[in-house]
Every structure is written in C-alpha cells, then in structure tokens.
C-alpha cells in the first residue's frame, strides 16, 4: 500500500507550524498506524532529516499517550480506538491522510504532534482523589458497594486521560475528562465525603486552565477511545450546582 501523508511539523512551542507532505510506500495492511509513522521516520532519519515527533508508549490503547488527529478526528475516524490501535487496513491504498496534533489553548504544541497536557494533571491535583493517607484504612469489605454502582464507577474510571475529548470538542472543552473523574469517585461511598468540594475544585481548575465550555455537541463522546458517556457531564453539573448552592463560603 502507498499513501500521501500530510503531517503537521512545528519545530518548537513558539515556532510557526505547517503541514508537510510525504509519500510513504511499502506499507502492509497489518501495520499499525504508528508503525507506518515509524517507517516514515526511519526514512527521514536515513536522509538525515528530523523524524516526526509524536507521543506513544504502550501501543495497546491504555496509556493515553497518543495525541494525534487523523483526517479530522482525534485518534482516528475509527470508533473506540486510540491511534496505536488503528491498522492500515482501515485506509484505502493511495489515500491522502492528514495528521495533526490535538489543538487547544490548554494543550500547547511542544513539537510536531507532541502537545503538553499538564492541564489535565492539574485538574486531578485540584481534587480528583479521596483524601486518605496510607495506612489506617478499614477492611476492604467493611463497606459494601452495590455491584451496579461499582460497575458504573468503573465505566467512568476507564478514562485514559488522553485528551481526545478536548481535541474533538468544537469548544476545546475538558468537561468529559473532568466529569468522568468526578463521576468515578462520586458514585462510590468512599468518594461521598468530598463529593461537593471535589466537583467545585475540579471545575474551577478546569476553567482556570483555559478550556472552552460545553455546548452539548457531544463530539467528545464519539472521539473517546473508551466511550466515556456524556451523562457524566450532566452528573457533574448536578454535583457542582448542588455544592455551590449549599456551600458555606
């Protein structure tokens, strides 16, 4: 198979970027998308040119490092996959393929397809946890948790923090990411004590990072490789409003 790849190249955070076209051939349908880029990078390197910088690590769809937009869709037009799980058999021989970094003010480009997603870490730091220290916790079976609640919490907890939701959102909003963590902990008894405070702190941090607002396009849900549902955003809204209305400060 052969393809014409149009890739975003940007030499540094403050540099101006542009699309650069490359012909790649000798691609087999079994290759993963990242292996196709590996091959192109080998070729660039042999020519003494700088390879395309891109983030990847586990290559099995769980670490959340992938951060490219392929043909206008974060990760790829295929549903419920990360870029590393996309195979070249999903494309037609001879296709033009466009590859760009996730774009958002809160995710500045560091180089080529590599973006800085520290904003997500700061949202978690603001309150995405249960405040328990190591040790002194009760026996794990002390508190029963209904199976459905645990499963539902797990649905929300499956988020891999890749940022595709932000990349897909027409407003570059981080609500799906933030809501997923609030819903994960908010559905478990252990997360109840700080439920309201957590929602407020995380939403405030999310806003401070410069993400956009949710206007209910739901693009995030379709782009999410783990199919996290927008119902968590509604839940976050509820938790946040209730907490704000009953806050004592």
């Amino acid at each position: 198979m052969r393809f014409k790849l149009h890739v975003w190249r940007q030499s540094g955070p403050n540099a101006k970027g542009a699309m650069e076209a490359h012909d790649v051939d000798g691609i087999t349908p079994e290759m993963s998308f990242l292996e196709m880029i590996d091959l192109l990078n080998e070729k660039l390197l042999a020519d003494g040119k700088e390879p395309i910088a891109f983030e990847h690590d586990c290559r099995e769809g769980i670490c959340g490092a992938c951060s490219m937009v392929i043909d206008g869709v974060p990760h790829s037009p295929e549903r419920a996959v990360t870029t590393c799980q996309v195979h070249m058999r999903s494309f037609q021989d001879g296709d033009d393929i466009h590859v760009e970094p996730f774009r958002a003010k809160a995710f500045p480009v560091l180089k080529d397809l590599v973006v800085d997603r520290d904003a997500f870490d700061r949202i978690i730091q603001a309150g995405g946890y249960v405040s328990v220290n190591t040790g002194g916790t009760p026996d794990a079976n002390e508190i029963q948790i209904p199976k459905v609640a645990a499963e539902s919490a797990m649905d929300a907890a499956a988020c891999i923090g890749c940022g595709a939701c932000v990349a897909a959102c027409p407003n570059a909003s981080a609500m799906l990411f933030t809501a997923a963590k609030i819903a994960h902990l908010g559905q478990l008894p252990q997360g109840q004590v700080e439920r309201g405070a957590r929602a407020r702190a995380m939403v405030e941090q999310m806003d401070a990072e410069g993400f956009g607002n949710c206007t209910n396009h739901y693009e995030c849900m379709d782009a999410c490789p783990k199919e996290i549902h927008v119902e968590w955003i509604a839940r976050m809204n509820r938790d946040y409003l209730k907490a704000s209305l009953t806050a004592k400060d």
Binding site: V130, V132, P138, A140, I143, K147, E151, A153, L188
Partner: peptide, 22 residues
C-alpha cells in the same frame, strides 16, 4: 491485605459480587 484495604479506600472500583462484597 493492607494494599487491598488501601486501594478500596482510595476509590479503586474493584469487581464486586451482587451482595456488594469484593
């Protein structure tokens, strides 16, 4: 055993039986 206690307290959503136990 302490690890499991710790993780549950942190909100790790381990699989559960219908009765709510791990």
């Amino acid at each position: 055993n302490n690890i499991i206690d710790q993780c549950v307290a942190q909100g790790v959503p381990f699989a559960r039986e219908y009765g709510g136990l791990l």
